[in-house]
Design a binder for these strands. Structure first.
Lengths: 241, 241
DNA sequence: CCGACACATTGGTCATACGATTCAGAATAT
DNA sequence: ATATTCTGAATCGTATGACCAATGTGTCGG
């Protein structure tokens, strides 16, 4: 389905095991690996171990220094916008914190993006968005969560891209991970809430009509609802005192 | 000065040449390198060439496939939030587009972060921010642009961190790059504009007083001013028709 | 004209060796 | 006893050469 899936190479395999462990906090900041250790643990050659480490280093999960080894960096150093790292963390124990942070980001960006889209979208783009919304609603009402998710992702992606801001567009993978993460980890009801469907329709309609402030408000309502849903879960499975 | 500067290794050297070229668009999407070619061009071994490619691949600038080679990906695929990629692009010909996108992102995020900071900051944090602002203003009035820049970066970083949202905090390096980029590429006046200094003081004061909506508005004014400054430069060196 | 098969090209992986760096601890001088 | 210098081990950094696996290309036969 994905246009360019990562090839299943050995270093990707190592990365797929080592990355999530570190992201999950299995090794405290300051913990040190040696390459030799990684070679033996994963049964790979120095070449492969080094390439995996090199990628982890580029996301600032670790630093590699002679005589010291490969040291795990504190969380604050991590490149938290790396989609791969986000995926790893959403699969791990910080899932809820991660979702909360990401939702805060969405709340800041998506309304602005929707407003920009309402100003810039061309006629065929508006039509496509409207149609997308219509099909999305149909799947939502039918309770086909998988198809709904697929179109929901596409809906948000399209708006972020229509904003004309490359950085906003660059968040579409992040938003997709969040939406996917919510469904994959059973944080979604059986049917999307009707209120949410209506709000999505409002966004599509506002963009179609070229009303930036309405698009902003409707999108803001969507993400606000998500924030509240997360807080609700918190009260339910509270980690607090 | 930097707590953990990247070591000057051979693969970092290759990366520092190859990365900016690709980021600058010197190779069209679809252009193909071979590892052999890279080895000869940079006079390095396969090991080193591969590691550089692996990092470029992790930022989705290229994909590497057997029998094909290392193919440059279209811009839309790039991990535009990677601080290293941002630095490369700010040094290249897309500088203005890049600054515009990044400023749009700042405009969406920083006001929200300032509001959150006004709600959450502890007393000593508020004091430190106020002091930071005072010293910043002094350097600004004295026309010491380097010191001003350093504190300006720290000011914005502190607010993003005080927001309590990890993703916002993760943007502090990006914002730092933007601020540094503006100064390094002569997009700043000799003295910071007094209006800008006043607005920064308002932000600090609003956070100190625990007034989220005031902090939001003042920060919004700061970034709005930056947006307008950029548009002004556009009119000046217009690329349009 | 079309399809099947052999071949050449290219990245992926491995094993090994040596160099460069740096931290630790011993040896030495004060 | 303390400070300083030096020696050495540990570890990453880099290079080399070889082989494997996958895949596009071109040829040959129908």
């Amino acid at each position: 389905m994905s246009p360019s899936a990562d090839p299943v190479t050995l270093h990707n395999r190592v990365l797929a095991e080592l990355g999530p462990s570190i992201a999950a906090g299995a090794y405290a900041a300051g913990h040190v690996f040696t390459l030799d250790r990684l070679e033996r643990d994963y049964g790979v050659s120095r070449t492969v171990a080094r390439e995996a480490v090199r990628v982890l280093e580029s996301m600032r999960l670790v630093v590699s220094r002679p005589r010291t080894g490969v040291r795990v960096l504190p969380r604050e150093e991590w490149s938290v916008f790396d989609p791969q790292l986000i995926r790893w963390r959403l699969a791990g124990p910080d899932r809820m914190d991660q979702l909360r942070s990401l939702t805060g980001l969405r709340a800041a960006v998506e309304p602005v993006a929707a407003a920009a889209a309402a100003q810039r979208a061309t006629a065929p783009q508006r039509a496509r968005l409207t149609d997308l919304n219509r099909r999305m609603a149909a799947f939502g009402e039918a309770g086909d969560l998988d198809s709904f998710l697929r179109l929901d992702i596409e809906f948000h992606r399209m708006i972020l891209e229509l904003s004309g801001n490359e950085m906003f567009a660059g968040l579409s993978d992040v938003v997709a991970e969040v939406l996917r993460g919510r469904t994959a980890h059973d944080l979604m009801p059986d049917h999307p809430r009707p209120e949410a469907l209506r709000l999505h329709a409002h966004v599509a309609s506002a963009i179609d009509s070229g009303l930036p402030s309405v698009a902003d408000a409707a999108m803001r309502a969507i993400v606000t609802e998500v924030v509240e849903a997360l807080d609700g879960l918190d009260a339910y499975a509270g980690t607090g005192p």
